[in-house]
Measured scan of single mutants.
Amino acid sequence: MASQGTKRSYEQMETDGERQNATEIRASVGKMIDGIGRFYIQMCTELKLSDYEGRLIQNSLTIERMVLSAFDERRNKYLEEHPSAGKDPKKTGGPIYKRVDRKWMRELVLYDKEEIRRIWRQANNGDDATAGLTHMMIWHSNLNDTTYQRTRALVRTGMDPRMCSLMQGSTLPRRSGAAGAAVKGVGTMVMELIRMIKRGINDRNFWRGENGRKTRSAYERMCNILKGKFQTAAQRAMMDQVRESRNPGNAEIEDLIFLARSALILRGSVAHKSCLPACVYGPAVASGYDFEKEGYSLVGIDPFKLLQNSQVYSLIRPNENPAHKSQLVWMACNSAAFEDLRVLSFIRGTKVSPRGKLSTRGVQIASNENMDAMESSTLELRSRYWAIRTRSGGNTNQQRASAGQISVQPAFSVQRNLPFDKPTIMAAFTGNTEGRTSDMRAEIIRMMEGAKPEEMSFQGRGVFELSDERAANPIVPSFDMSNEGSYFFGDNAEEYDN
């Protein structure tokens, strides 16, 4: 993207840094990872977990959730003011799984939030270390993106479920800051804005008074975040219109849905970061690795190297396929839920299948599930090659597409044709070009129609051997075009429920 120079890199967003050079960025990201790792080690000690239990991804998720809940100030305040039966607002906890007599047992633990905050700050040299908290939120978000298709949420806001490739980060909490905003897809931002506008339509006082002023500035800020994701002048001009509207209503909703559809071809720039579970960072720190000293990046080879040398386990339900569970977590670790499966298959070195073909449910185990038949197995999170994460949407291309997802959002900077089903997408653009945004709409449609099938995206960008740390010898991959490109292809993934 041309304006790259004016933006802070995501590592800076990730670490609240002012302008830093590459070495400083690597050190501050490393410091953040160190903090998460030290916190995780301490929690495993508190909970008396064995090494194996500490490497269980379900335990990692519970521990991450506990610290996120302990620092969720708004919710904590709300819980104190609106006490609900049987919930102690000062405590947080969740299921911890232990191996007892050759069987997995679930144990519900409860801790004072104050105590968890103390352990977290102690692991982070006394700081609140917001960057580390956001990092864990993005890992949870990436896992949700890989596990669930947001059909219901899309339909509720009037969008087409086939636009799911635009929904990265749709389950990120509001408090995820600049680093969170960077990884949100165009569809996620559109959905947040539509929800806001709908509230304004239904509630006369939404934009009024002292609160209304705050609401208005939040609305304009979200519009600017979305505008910054678009790469064409016409899309940005249309966002200006939406932002400046005196009284946002149905016309703005129409414009936003139009823009979301246009992003299936004229893709937005959305950041991709490899955020790993805390149970990967903990053992690495415990083994003596100093992330701050060595430096770390979320968008280069580092996460690949770390996963190459990590042992992570997962509980497996009786009829689940461990290899499929591994694929789910591998995609989440690489922030690749909406990437082209052919690119992923090449990088991973084994075939990556669409969601609907995987015999696996989510990673988390519900409290009512029976533990008797639970097994555990090693997650295979290694890769054959590594590639640089991208934040450009890439230019655009036609490809055989599917009944489910009709476009992709690249996660890796790797040369390819970008699949999208042009006739299906263009069919949504018939007729409606009147109104105050008509010239911009016409211009956007013209650009979409001009998108050429034979153009290559990320020209000359390749993948790298894991021994090639400096990215000196790019390998331009070859793809098996007979395979499906979309992950949520004609899909039956479970729906995400809060």
Results as ranks from 00 to 15, higher is better:
Arg416Tyr: 12
Leu49Lys: 03
Phe258Ser: 06
Ser359Thr: 08
Glu64Ala: 01
Ala233His: 15
Gly5Arg: 00
Ala401Phe: 04
Gly268Ser: 15
Lys87His: 12
Leu110Pro: 14
Ala129Gln: 03
Ile33Ala: 06
Gly35Lys: 07
Gln235Thr: 11
Gly93Ile: 08
Ser478Pro: 14
Met163Thr: 08
Ser326Asn: 07
Arg391Trp: 03
Asp468Pro: 08
Asn368Met: 00
Asp88Cys: 00
Ser377Arg: 09
Asp145Cys: 10
Gly94Phe: 08
Glu375Cys: 00
Phe479Lys: 15
Ala2His: 13
Leu166Arg: 05
Arg38Ser: 01
Lys113Trp: 10
Leu266Pro: 05
Ser478Tyr: 09
Thr378Arg: 00
Asn395Ile: 09
Phe258Met: 10
Tyr10Lys: 15
Leu259Trp: 07
Asp127Glu: 02
Val155Tyr: 04
Ile301Leu: 08
Ile406Asn: 07
Asp240Tyr: 12
Lys273Val: 09
Gln235Pro: 14
Ala332Glu: 05
Ser392Cys: 14
Ile265His: 12
Lys214Trp: 05
Met371Tyr: 07
Val343Phe: 12
Ala286Asn: 06
Ala153Leu: 06
Asp160Glu: 07
Glu494His: 14
Leu154Tyr: 04
Ile25Phe: 08
Arg243His: 00
Met137Glu: 07
Arg261Pro: 08
Ile316Arg: 00
Ser326Thr: 14
Ser345Gly: 12
Ser413Cys: 04
Ser3Pro: 08
Glu369Arg: 07
Arg75Gly: 15
Gly126Asp: 03
Tyr40Asn: 12
Leu358Val: 14
Glu339Pro: 05
Asn473Cys: 04
Phe304Leu: 09
Asp439Gln: 09
Phe479Ser: 08
Ser60Gln: 12
Lys48Tyr: 07
Asn397Thr: 03
Phe338Ile: 15
Leu166Glu: 07
Thr360Cys: 06
Gly394Cys: 10
Asn498Arg: 15
Arg99Glu: 10
Gly132His: 11
Glu24Phe: 05
Phe39Tyr: 03
Ile138Cys: 07
Asp145His: 01
Gln122Pro: 07
Ile406Gly: 12
Asn395Cys: 01
Thr232Glu: 05
Leu328Gln: 02
Pro318Ala: 07
Leu315Ile: 04
Asn321Val: 02
Gln405Tyr: 10
Ser376Pro: 12
Glu115Ser: 15
Asn309Lys: 01
Gly268Val: 15
Met43Val: 02
Met163Asp: 03
Ala123Pro: 06
Lys198Cys: 10
Ser9Cys: 07
Glu46Ser: 01
Val67Ile: 03
Val363Glu: 08
Gln327Met: 12
Arg317His: 09
Met189Gln: 01
Pro419Lys: 03
Phe429Asn: 12
Phe346His: 13
Gln235Met: 08
Ser457Pro: 13
Leu49Asn: 04
Thr15Gln: 10
Glu369Met: 08
Pro474Phe: 07
Cys275Trp: 12
Ala2Thr: 06
Gly490Gln: 11
Arg317Trp: 11
Asp51Ala: 00
Ala234Tyr: 02
Phe429Pro: 03
Gly356Arg: 12
Thr157Ala: 03
Leu306Pro: 08
Thr92Lys: 11
Thr157His: 04
Met13Glu: 03
Leu358Arg: 12
Arg400Phe: 12
Arg99Ile: 02
Leu466Glu: 00
Ala234Val: 15
Val67Gly: 01
Asp240Leu: 08
Ala337Thr: 15
Arg26Tyr: 09
Ser482Met: 10
Ile406Gln: 15
Asp16Ala: 14
Arg26Lys: 08
Ile365Val: 08
Tyr289Ser: 02
Pro95Cys: 09
Glu107Pro: 07
Tyr78Leu: 02
Val285Ile: 14
Thr6Asp: 11
Arg19Asp: 10
Gln58Asn: 15
Gln327Arg: 15
Arg195Ile: 08
Gly132Glu: 08
Lys90Phe: 02
Val343Arg: 08
Lys452Ser: 03
Leu256Tyr: 05
Phe464Ala: 09
Glu484Ile: 04
Gln20Ser: 03
Lys325Asp: 11
Ile365Glu: 08
Gln459Arg: 15
Ala27Val: 12
